[in-house]
Design a protein around this nucleic acid. Structure first.
Length: 198
DNA sequence: TGCACGATGAAC
DNA sequence: TTCATCGTGCAC
């Protein structure tokens, strides 16, 4: 009759969904503050999946040559230029999905890529790396443009109180972006074993 | 209409 | 280090 410890920590009533105002701020700040938050996925007919965000990357806008939005407003980047608090999900290398959260005011073209999570509840398989994260959390292109203040897929406050120690590094796989490749826009929780490339 | 190239992951 | 695999953006 003793409830599992993890279950108690993620009781439905304790999951406080992040408001849109959280996302409508400076992208690097949102990236930094997403660390430690809970990513929640509710697929119909399946148990609710919860994972703690441990690694992210900030993509600042059209001036950031590593950002998809540097191509301007296209069918693909439409979501990035849309209102904050929505999911930008795209396919890379023809086989892996990557999930971002749109940040800043509408029209800004910025987002934060989720690169790794730590399983908390009902999450199976590897979760380090943006593609594996999406696979484990059952996130695919059908969730592109999904409103993160709604249901199905959202981010919530975590019960943790202590601040997380943060490491800043250059972003992964953007060597083509010149000086933007060297910017320290990748953030992860120091010492966390689920980070993709410590 | 064609083509080069990935915000990756897994195998070798 | 190589390769799978396909949507996107841009050249033609």
């Amino acid at each position: 009759m003793t409830p599992p410890k993890a279950g108690a920590a993620v009781d439905a009533a304790s999951l406080r969904k992040l408001p849109r105002s959280f996302y409508d701020r400076d992208t690097a700040l949102v990236a930094r503050e997403l660390l430690g938050k809970y990513l929640v996925r509710v697929s119909s007919g399946e148990a609710r999946r919860i994972a703690r965000i441990v690694e992210v990357e900030a993509y600042l806008g059209p001036h950031d040559l590593a950002s998809h939005s540097s191509k301007g407003l296209t069918r693909r980047t439409r979501v990035m230029f849309g209102p904050p608090g929505h999911a930008y999900v795209y396919l890379v290398y023809g086989m892996h999905f990557c999930m971002n959260v749109v940040t800043g005011p509408e029209g800004h073209g910025s987002a934060v890529l989720l690169r790794a999570v730590e399983p908390v509840l009902n999450v199976e398989g590897p979760t380090r790396g943006p593609g594996r994260l999406c696979k484990a959390m059952r996130i695919d292109g059908g969730l592109n443009a999904h409103d993160l203040t709604g249901d199905g897929l959202f981010i919530a406050e975590s019960p943790a109180t202590a601040p997380v120690p943060v490491v800043r590094r250059p972003r992964v796989g953007v060597d083509y972006a010149g000086r933007w490749a060297r910017r320290l826009l990748r953030y992860y929780i120091r010492g966390n074993p689920f980070v993709s490339r410590p």
